[in-house]
Design a protein around this nucleic acid. Sequence first.
RNA 1: UGCCCAAUGGUGUAAUUGGCAACACGACUGACUCUGGAUCAGUAAAGUCCAGGUUCGAACCCUGGUUGGGCAACCA
Length: 581
Amino acid sequence: MTNPEEEKVTEKKSLNFIEAKVEEDLANGKNGGRVQTRFPPEPNGYLHIGHAKAICLDFGIAEKYGGVCNLRFDDTNPTKENMEYVDAIKEDIQWLGYQWGNEYYASDYFPQLWDFAIALIKRGKAYIDEQSSDEIAAQKGTPTQPGVDSPFRNRPIEESLDLFNKMNSGQIGEGKMVLRAKIDMASPNMHFRDPIIYRVVDTPHHRTGTTWHAYPMYDFAHGQSDYFEGVTHSLCTLEFVVHRPVYDLFVDWLKEIRGEGDSMDDNRPRQTEFNKLNLNYILLSKRNLLVLVNEGLVSGWDDPRMPTICGFRRRGYTPSGIHKFIDKIGYTTYDALNDFALMESAIREDLNATATRVAAVVNPVKLIVANYPEGQIEEMEAINNPEDETAGSHKIAFSRELWMEKEDFMEDAPKKYFRMTPGNEVRLKNAYIVKCTGCKKDENGDVVEVYAEYDPETKSGMPGANRKVKGTIHWVSCVRCIEAEVRMYDRLWKVENPRDELARLQGEGKTLLDAMKEMMNPDSLELRPVCYVEEYLAAAKPLDHFQFQRIGYFTVDKDSTPDHLVFNRTVALKDTWAKAL
RNA sequence: UGCCCAAUGGUGUAAUUGGCAACACGACUGACUCUGGAUCAGUAAAGUCCAGGUUCGAACCCUGGUUGGGCAACCA
């Protein structure tokens, strides 16, 4: 018997506006009660966290309502696209945990789109314009001023037909002529002012080679592709709102020409727009990310500071952490700027539940337990994850000489400092309680060794260990540890809103590159070439996740080898002590 | 001098569709802790952009404004 109160709580969670719309469409029997979505990336770059938001929606809606989500590459511009991107996109979607139904390409529809264009020309709804792009732009008017008709607008149909064929045969140079839909040059919607629907591109296409020279534009490909595939809900971001009337018009024309219904029936895809992701301290524009990579400001698309899916993966972010984040921010029609702290909290929440706890010293100083027998080694038990009893434990070696963090010793400590300071007792995690007796400094006054004495009765697990001490610090054995490189990553940009700041700096006359250099956080990467980690990590493989106790979450980098371990900091632990300072 | 869209604590998202403005992140207390993490308990923080209107009742509907975003690529 379930408690009715409990049931109420579980069904409480509200639908986002898109889910509500889908349910309404379903209730009204639209598209025969079917739900089909698509994720339509252009293969011209790597996917970033903004795409992850779209992916979660496209695949999530299909999953929730028993439909399918297909992957469709919107590959209508061969000058920017290639197969490297196609493969990377597929890898990233799968890593996020989704599997598409079919793999489609807009380029597969070039023949149907061509036929559609021919049909429009024959009906006097499209014409070849031979003006330059400047002339066309000038005639288009502005948002506040109507456009004027092209002198070619009413040329004979036969002429347009002939020239359209020539456009596609390689006889017409790029930019010499275009095919335009004849709609309304005075429309308040700029996209209705006789939009260009085909242009000449001589760059070979990554899939169709040199078969075509005339390529459809986005507006002439997207809605039609959706229609060919049977998409019911075409979800995209808010900047496409103004394209929706064009989308609908072309689908209407297509249906009519093919004799497959009219604008009034329900057998058609519908576009719905949601807010795209904006995150503070993050820059998502593909163009800008490309500059970062090409100019060597980062190590590549998968640099752990990049907001790309592959960058986040290498940084140590997890698919489930990303899902938690996407769930938290939601889908609306408000252009929000999300706080990156929400992203980090989602990642911490996920990693806290799953990451194995280990000891690692990232800023080492030697700790000598003076009264511990020289040469003696003890195997201590270390719990793998206090949040998960089934995670078990592993062994960690204890010895007379240990590595500890420099920050965990202070000669003159403030009152609330619960770590190593002369005369103070501290617990060495999983081992003994020790009392700090002093330190040794070099000629510069820097601490080079810390001294302590242990209480043999206080070994973890023994009755004497129950004594209360305020602080616990981590350590690794000098004789039984592994040297490792640790890369401490932080935010790439020092400004909260890099997009606006970039525009501002460029407005001052700075080049894009200079503006970027000025905005970059000099501490975005701090290399710690010599750190010490416990031996347990010898077997760690790339993308394994760990919590370095008291420091943060780390993953093994792809550069890591058994002889030279490399760890990336995913995100630091919350540090209320640092805040108190 | 256009068209379209939006506006709810610091941030984001809700509000049974016209009925006590709630949740998360963040912040701050305190408890607990062999991680200054986690966990637990609690506090502060919006009266819903503004002005009118409809209504017994408005965050929600209407009118007018304000502010912000989008639209003038042979990009998607």
